[in-house]
């Protein structure tokens, strides 16, 4: 794994693991600015999974999420000098990621398909549903299957929400961003963030409400 490689190189560079842990985000950013490849690897290892997850849940296509996640970090590398620390690094990277997605128009071009393709349905002619391709290391038990079924249903319901509301809900409830961070990422006002989250959750509630009640009845 790359994180192991990073750790090994840190040791090679006569740094201790403790040094890595204690190094603040600002120090890593400074090192990236100076062209330190090791620091950039740290950045990728720490932030790319969440960027990929965000893009995947927005776009619903693993390959496109992969391409965009890579492009996002190329842009991060190129534009790191422009990061002034007004927001957190994660917020800044999310903003770039969503701009990449918007620039490529893939996200928006797929809006029509959003209504016809669901995560728990066969995808791109494959027999397996997209959600089934997600890694799952948990033991195969009845409870796990039930959880998985609910998760599939939730992922499907998420796809039924208008993209502008969906991204706000994902950033808030999945990624745990604050309203202010979401406003910064999406370049909208906090009031608009509040409205989009409320509408997105309401739509999700409408889609899921019956399902939850059934599950509770069980």
């Amino acid at each position: 794994m790359l994180s192991v490689a990073v750790a090994e190189r840190i040791l090679d560079d006569n740094l201790t693991v403790a040094d890595e842990a204690s190094a603040s985000e600002a120090e890593w950013i400074e090192r990236v600015r100076q062209g330190d490849r090791l620091a950039f690897e740290w950045l990728v290892v720490h932030y790319q999974p969440s960027v990929y997850g965000l893009l995947y849940r927005l776009i619903g296509d693993a390959e496109e999420a992969r391409d965009l996640a890579q492009e996002t970090f190329l842009r991060v590398y190129q534009k790191i000098d422009q990061f002034r620390g007004e927001a957190s690094l994660r917020t800044w990277i999310y903003r770039i990621a969503l701009r990449q997605a918007a620039n490529h128009r893939r996200w928006w071009q797929r809006r029509a398909r959003d209504r016809t393709i669901s995560l728990d349905g066969p995808h791109n002619g494959q027999q397996r549903a997209v959600i089934e391709t997600l890694p799952d290391a948990r033991p195969n038990s009845e409870q796990v299957l039930l959880d998985r079924e609910r998760q599939q249903h939730l992922e499907w319901a998420l796809r039924q929400v208008k993209p502008s509301y969906r991204v706000a809900v994902i950033l808030r409830d999945v990624e745990g961003c604050s309203y202010e961070e979401i406003a910064h990422i999406l370049r909208i006002s906090v009031g608009t963030v509040k409205s989009r989250i409320a509408r997105g959750r309401e739509r999700l509630r409408q889609v899921l409400c019956g399902g939850y009640r059934d599950a509770e009845d069980d």
Partner: peptide, 17 residues
């Protein structure tokens, strides 16, 4: 939504980036 498991990127993505 908060309990959704993280979507893991392909294992080679970080190295490719």
């Amino acid at each position: 939504l908060g309990m959704l498991p993280p979507v893991m990127p392909p294992a080679t993505l970080a190295a490719e980036t």
